[in-house]
């Protein structure tokens, strides 16, 4: 990862790369991804949120080439769409043109999850402190991303806000830091937090309401090749007005909770079962109900500062 950061490109140079045949080539975690798009919103989102990501050298093999297109024929001028393409495939139906950057983020999620066969992949936010990993696993709507953003802005290293990638052989967590996906009210909550949060383009009226992304801290991006030993698994559950209640969770229950949030667990067969078993062995598990970030962040930091 020796190249200059994306922020070294002028806006016109960024645009030129995005429309060139080779695309804009960025190091994202351990992968080099080529991005092509004529959507101004994609350029804006990249300039804002990916400023610290390194440009790949010309002779580096590109792992994945993706494109966010505008649609066919006249449509691209009259009423542009956001069309995600990978290797000539279109895994998703098009979205409206003003959701182009969100489409890029979701498309990249799909690309990374579909190709990382070396990992057990769990739908979870992952952060690191003092060399130890915290996995926040929960279904959508649990406040996981907001909490993840809150911790990242307090100096935890962000590994991912969506994907815990657990090495099948070494059991370590692979960082794949990307912008943190926020929706609706949590956008304003995070914007108001200390730590100078930078928020990218807003996509309104998606199936989830308004979606925007938080820029990952620079150190998270720069340390993206350093893997992390998993240490804690927390299942957060936001309930408006609730008191904070953090409780230990048994390993069998932790196992089942993680299985229900694991993408490729079924496909990995007994290998996945064993990898999950090792992960659970390595971690202390907790459930955490909370009504505000002010309660839960100190509670988690207290758990995570106890000696192993």
């Amino acid at each position: 990862m020796s190249g200059a950061p994306l922020s070294s490109l002028s806006r016109s140079a960024l645009h030129d790369r995005l429309v060139s045949p080779d695309g804009l080539r960025l190091h994202i975690g351990r992968f080099v991804t080529s991005i092509r798009s004529r959507h101004a919103q994609v350029a804006e989102g990249l300039a804002t949120l990916y400023a610290d990501y390194r440009l790949a050298d010309d002779d580096r093999f590109c792992d994945y080439a993706v494109e966010v297109g505008r649609g066919d024929g006249l449509r691209k001028f009259v009423r542009p769409q956001s069309l995600f393409r990978f290797e000539g495939m279109q895994p998703f139906k098009p979205l409206p043109g003003d959701q182009a950057f969100a489409m890029l983020e979701w498309g990249l999620n799909w690309v990374f999850t579909n190709h990382a066969q070396h990992y057990l992949i769990i739908h979870a936010a992952v952060l690191e402190r003092d060399g130890q990993g915290l996995i926040l696993a929960a279904p959508p709507g649990s406040g996981k991303s907001t909490l993840c953003a809150g911790l990242a802005l307090r100096g935890w290293r962000l590994l991912s806000d969506e994907l815990a990638m657990v090495g099948l052989e070494d059991g370590l967590l692979l960082p794949l830091p990307r912008p943190v996906s926020l929706k609706n009210r949590s956008i304003d909550i995070v914007r108001a937090l200390p730590g100078d949060p930078v928020i990218g383009p807003m996509a309104h009226d998606t199936a989830k309401g308004t979606v925007a992304h938080l820029k990952p801290p620079r150190t998270s991006v720069e340390e993206a090749l350093t893997r992390v030993q998993p240490r804690w698994v927390v299942l957060p559950k936001f309930e408006a007005g609730s008191e904070c209640a953090v409780q230990p969770m048994g390993r069998a229950r932790m196992f089942m909770s993680l299985v229900s949030n694991a993408f490729n667990y079924p496909r990995l067969g007994v290998t996945g079962f064993q990898a999950m078993g090792r992960l659970v062995e390595a971690c202390d598990g907790y459930t955490a109900r909370y009504g505000s970030l002010d309660q839960i962040v100190p509670a988690l930091e207290s758990i995570c500062s106890r000696p192993a």
């Binding site: 139906k93 979701w106 279904p139 989830k208 993408f263 496909r267």
Partner: peptide, 17 residues
Amino acid sequence: HWLRMPLHLLIPHLAYK
């Protein structure tokens, strides 16, 4: 189908083909 993944967890917003 042998390798299907429950991606709705990750990408619930998209009509998945």
